[in-house]
Simulated scan of single mutants.
Amino acid sequence: MDDANSWYKQGNDMMMQEKNEDAIVAYDKAIELDPTYTSAWNNKGIAMFRLKRYEDAIACYDKTIEINPNHANAWYNKAKALRGLGQSYLDKANEDRVTAAKIINQSLAIFESAEKCYVQGDILSGEKK
């Protein structure tokens, strides 16, 4: 295939089969042949979004918007990708918070063990009865 539209259609076929990585390759070929092919840029962004590659998706939507600032779907898709990226940051923060809580609980258990050791040391040295 040596025309952008054929590669674009192949990308769409790959997306329908949920073969997003293959779709990206096909869209890249379409874009290589026609760098202003907004539908290929937009759909490449959709494939990236499906793979949770939000920053890459946003870059594709930005390119689509650069070529055609009135491309409504690109704006909508960029909004979804930004929300996805934002949510991924919240999820990471939540994971860190959970990890922090586990570490705090482990620390508290260690301090409790340490306190028991201090008490036992006091008992053995005659400081407490």
Rank of each mutant, 00 (worst) to 15 (best):
S6V: 03
F49C: 01
A114C: 14
K19S: 11
D3W: 04
P69W: 02
D3I: 10
D91H: 04
A59N: 08
T99S: 15
M15N: 02
D22V: 06
M14K: 07
A57H: 01
M16C: 11
A74E: 00
L82S: 10
E21P: 00
P69Q: 05
I65V: 12
E95A: 06
N5P: 05
Q17G: 04
G11S: 11
L108S: 11
T64S: 15
Y37R: 03
G84S: 10
S113G: 15
L124F: 12
W75D: 03
I123H: 10
A81I: 05
R53G: 01
Q17H: 09
E127G: 04
W75S: 06
K9R: 13
N70M: 07
A23M: 14
Q17M: 12
M1T: 06
C117F: 14
N70K: 15
G86F: 02
I65K: 10
N12C: 09
A101V: 09
D13L: 12
G126R: 11
Y54W: 04
I123N: 07
D91Q: 06
E21Y: 04
K129D: 04
A93C: 12
W75I: 07
E21C: 03
Q87M: 10
Y89T: 12
H71Q: 13
A26R: 01
I31V: 09
D13F: 11
K29H: 11
E21M: 08
D28C: 14
P69T: 06
L124K: 15
W75L: 13
Y8R: 03
A59G: 05
C60Y: 00
Q10P: 08
A23S: 08
V25D: 07
D22A: 10
S39M: 08
K78W: 02
K80F: 07
M16E: 14
G126P: 06
R83N: 12
D122Q: 13
E115G: 07
S6E: 03
A100M: 14
Y76C: 06
T36P: 02
K44M: 08
G126F: 05
K29Q: 02
V119H: 13
A57K: 00
K52V: 04
K102G: 09
N5T: 07
L33F: 08
A72D: 15
A109W: 05
N20I: 01
I24G: 00
G11V: 03
F111G: 03
I65Q: 06
